[in-house]
Computed example of a mutant assay.
Amino acid sequence: MSRTVMAVALAGAIFASEATAQTTAGATDATFTYQGQDKIIAQAPRADAISAARFYDLHGGCDGLCIAPDAAADDVETITENRVIDFMANELANGQGLLIDSRLPSDRAIGFLPASASIPHTLVTPDNPLLPDILKALGARSMLGAFNFSDAMTLVVFDAGPTTMDAHRLVNALIDAGYPADKIKYYRGGMQVWSSLGLTTEGTSS
């Protein structure tokens, strides 16, 4: 049962929650269909400082300033909000990509990007017996005891934002497991920057 639940979750299941309504008169909304549901990425007329502040997070601990590096790993592209939205409307909607929330479920409960799937960075470890199932759910194929990633999905990985390292941990764990770096993209802004720009989130109360 646990493997079935994991496979369903990693296939892109979305937390069942109401989306926060954030629309701007005259703005061009990005609309796409994901798993049979219409998703709209809109922008609020003004930033909601309270919503953005809830994603500010230093609980992971750090030496000196808690500012994530610009890049998560060699050959992993760092992308901005426009690229994330384009990814949602294209690779994600076409089933060729997955938007991954690398935070723990307790952090995700505060809010998340629409159409994102939860794969906490703590799950992708060599000693996790479900690691092969995770890689298969991402499109890898097991062949003679090894994985072939030629059909693996393109991934966009994010976390709370530039003050956290969850996305870095997941990106590097995936690469260590054999996932091609050029099939992974890092959204450094995460929930902090996304929400500070007034872009649509889900799982948050208005």
Rank of each mutant, 00 (worst) to 15 (best):
Q35C: 05
S2E: 15
P114N: 12
R46I: 06
I14L: 07
A16Y: 04
F112G: 01
D74N: 07
V193L: 14
I184V: 15
S196E: 12
A72N: 06
A19W: 05
W194R: 00
P129M: 11
F158I: 02
A25T: 12
L170D: 01
L10E: 02
P126I: 09
I85S: 06
A73Q: 11
C66Q: 08
Y179W: 09
R188A: 05
I119K: 00
V5L: 14
D48Y: 10
R83P: 00
K39S: 02
A49F: 13
M1Q: 10
L104E: 15
G203K: 00
D127K: 10
A16I: 11
I100S: 01
T24H: 09
F147I: 03
S118E: 10
Y34D: 11
S2G: 15
A93Q: 12
H121R: 13
F87S: 04
I50M: 07
T80L: 13
T80A: 15
I100V: 15
T20S: 10
F158Q: 00
V5M: 13
K39E: 07
A93V: 08
G203D: 00
A73H: 12
D75T: 06
T125H: 05
P114A: 11
H168Q: 12
K185Y: 02
G203L: 00
M191H: 04
T154N: 09
A25D: 11
A9W: 08
